[in-house]
Design a protein around this nucleic acid. Structure first.
Lengths: 116, 116
DNA sequence: GAAGTATGTCGCAAATATACGACATAATAT
DNA sequence: ATATTATGTCGTATATTTGCGACATACTTC
């Protein structure tokens, strides 16, 4: 058995993993759902909704912003955090393509050596 | 501003985050795609496809198995790793519901105080 | 049973993520 | 100007993830 190691990870695999990582914490999932339910938000309000300190929530917001999944604009004393719905839609399509690829592929069948 | 902190994270938020974490590494994305392209697989072969050691690949496989996204059965000298297509399909639906919630929700519009 | 081959486990090192208090900055209002 | 309120940054402690070498186990074959 030769060790080919021909392929590193593709850009698609890396991007999908990056987005998945952004969703890999319940606080960030909750933040996105919270933003989806509001129009104008400020970081402090979000922290009030979560069992986390304001600093930690801010950190999670930064992670989502780093991927451009959400956007924030300083507006005087408050900041408007909004969802980037266009990007979220694109990401949704990428996830769908991945899951379709994963689920449509033939699993082990009765004709195979194994039977899982 | 009162600190309500009424809601912790829901079970749905936690499960979504857990699955997202499972996909939050390009190696695990690649493993799922690789399994989707084959019927019968052994851990050694998977390691040969990735720029990682066999031990590390095994570790990633264990993480995917912990969530039951993949299954493995010892069959003599080799192990058959297979995708759990039913669960992957369910997970796909959950992700879709999340993304639809996130994208259909109204973003900041021209009538709002902010303009992002 | 000894050799070969393949998967599974352990322990450790390095990197990253998580969480938060304390402090900095900026704008408004009095 | 200064008090208030709100967001942003820093440093740090802890936990988790990632990666791998070395060793253990199990089955086949000779």
């Amino acid at each position: 058995m030769t060790y080919a190691k021909t392929s590193a990870f593709t850009a698609e695999q890396q991007y999908l993993a990056r987005v998945a990582k952004a969703l890999a914490h319940p606080a960030r999932v909750a933040i996105i759902q919270f933003l989806a339910s509001k129009q104008t938000c400020i970081s402090g309000d979000i922290a009030a909704e979560l069992p986390l300190s304001r600093t930690t929530v801010f950190q999670h917001l930064q992670e989502l912003k780093a991927l451009d999944l959400i956007r924030g604009e300083i507006d005087g004393l408050t900041v408007c955090y909004c969802l980037n719905t266009e990007l979220l839609h694109q990401v949704h399509q990428q996830f769908t393509a991945f899951f379709i690829e994963a689920t449509s592929g033939a699993a082990c069948g009765p004709n195979d050596a194994c039977a899982c």
